[in-house]
Amino acid sequence: MSTDKPKVATASLAGCFGCHMSILDIDDRILQLIDLVDFDKSPVDDIKEFTGRCAVGLIEGGCCNEENVRVLQDFRKHCDVLISLGECAICGGIPAMRNNVPLKECFDEAYRNGPSVHNPSGEYPSDPEIPLLLNKVYPCHEVVKMDYHLQGCPPPADTIWAALTALLTDKPVELPYELIKYD
């Protein structure tokens, strides 16, 4: 099973899995991709822990809680090249819309005052299994060093393909105008 192929790992932090859908959207080129690489820790193959050093790590979503930060730091430790995939990883995206609302107000709206909330005790969920929220949502590059940023919501499959194949064949990542899109 073990090969000399470089490994790729992916993670979805505070994202919607849309960027991962866009990875799958490379369609039958995924057959060429698995000739080039093995997938390591990733929701694509459901491997939960790193099995070794990875050439490329793709990160979807920013950091909204302490678990996101730990996963991101783990990826930085295991990946030679780490890529922010999509708007949420790059600028926080939709989850970052809470960044100009104080955290307590967010909690009160979600667990006390929201129109559909039934919570007579008024307690916030505090199970140790639930990761603690950060004061705001952080873009990945404000937490660890990120090497590349692929823009888009989600980045087009062609953008992901162009960047991955360039990196895996030791060529510079040069995206044409039409593959740089913020929406």
Binding site: G93, I94, H149, I180
Partner: peptide, 24 residues
Amino acid sequence: YCMYCEKSGNCELQAMAYRLSIMV
């Protein structure tokens, strides 16, 4: 937030960032 902005695609700020190849 370009992803839901009505102006996206016709926005001069966004277009300038594209022209200058700003990734982050």
